[in-house]
Design a protein around this nucleic acid. Sequence first.
DNA 1: GAGTGGTCTAGACCACACC
DNA 2: GTGTGGTCTAGACCACTCG
Lengths: 251, 251
Amino acid sequence: MERSAPGSLVPEVGLDRTSPVPLYFQVASRVQQLIESGEMPVGGRLENELELAERLGVSRPTIRRAVQYLVERGVLVRKRGAGTQIVHPKVRRPVELTSLYDDLAKTGQKPRTEVQTLRVGPAPDHVAEALGLDGNAHVTWIERLRFADGEPLAIMHNAVPVDVLPLGRADLEGHGLYELLRAAGYAPRMASQVVGARVATTAEARMLGDVRGAPLLTMTRTAWDASGQAVEYGSHIYRATRYAFELTLST
Amino acid sequence: MERSAPGSLVPEVGLDRTSPVPLYFQVASRVQQLIESGEMPVGGRLENELELAERLGVSRPTIRRAVQYLVERGVLVRKRGAGTQIVHPKVRRPVELTSLYDDLAKTGQKPRTEVQTLRVGPAPDHVAEALGLDGNAHVTWIERLRFADGEPLAIMHNAVPVDVLPLGRADLEGHGLYELLRAAGYAPRMASQVVGARVATTAEARMLGDVRGAPLLTMTRTAWDASGQAVEYGSHIYRATRYAFELTLST
DNA sequence: GAGTGGTCTAGACCACACC
DNA sequence: GTGTGGTCTAGACCACTCG
């Protein structure tokens, strides 16, 4: 018989077995929701896996998978022999793969993009190497100036293999590159990046409305989709007075 | 009977059931090794899970767990209905939680550390907040100058709760902070960081043997151990001409 | 010693990709 | 249609933690 034990930490779950959403995910989402709402207090302990499985009417492996999902996100901590505890109320996302456009839009700043250059041609050597293309493969090469709330923020250089996606000026002024890639079925799934710093040259400073010698954050990135296809190479500079990278790491 | 099918992609595995190393991990390690050595070619396909399970003499869930492990690291790609492919020869580590000391040691540069300041006292407000401590909790506050191959590279400020670890000058000159934390059973498992850039002040430039206005990479980080205990707060500056962050991200 | 998570098995049915 | 991975079950034994 299903009932909520007095003081039990996972009061109600309401699983839908007809839903296409996997059971383990339904369980994980519900638990996460209960933690975020404060119904399951940080520092509190979860019931053990067998009890949880029985009470929710699923098997132990399914419960384990749900708990595992939240452990990977830093919400729960498991200790063999000791139990499972809630250590953080919010999901800490292991670095999201988003573009600057998405980041700005999410924080309510109005992004605007000027496409300075857009041309198709053979990839330069270092780009071809980063993307794993052979020497005569063609890419779309883009230079964009990105504004936030009307102020220049970044100069962005990108290369996208033409096989992946034909790009037009209009697309790029109204959408982030990653948004376009996702829409075309080439959602970035993995990326390798190098973040550094240097000072602005006169030309860069002029474009960014800043002074020569202003600090810049630099980032070069290669991104691949789920199938391992390289979808984008980027080499960007950001005004460091207006932008910084936030990351969450977990081992 | 165990035999290697002609042309089979996972030739020999040699599992040791008496080993404390989990079977799924033995399988994953072996496959990864075969890929790195080139015996299993990038672009090649793995046998299906049932065959693999039968041939290696383990159950399908165990095989799945091994494959999953390599998928998360970007080595393999699974497609429902289509199969499993090798897309990258090397494990791409989701950002390792290491300290600068470890990074330098690994790349063969000789790190040296001068401890400039080391004192115990109540945590400043912003540090207490980052570490989730209450106002009168004490931390060890450290300022260090880090050299690589004899050249100054970074100025590092750290705070470590005294409950976590008592720190001595001598420890810090010969070891990385993360090494000390790990040895004390507080291995960092999760961290949140912000990476930015600015230019050096006169005082900073003097310490780093550089000029005022030189570009600096800045990083502030809070790290937690497996139990969710905050173990370290850091606020560091690096000479951007000599250091950059490399990251691999995956969703 | 009792309780907990960690690993592993041997099945089952389903959804999707490709021929 | 056939083959593949995705999900789920109902057990089992072990290793570790804690009182």
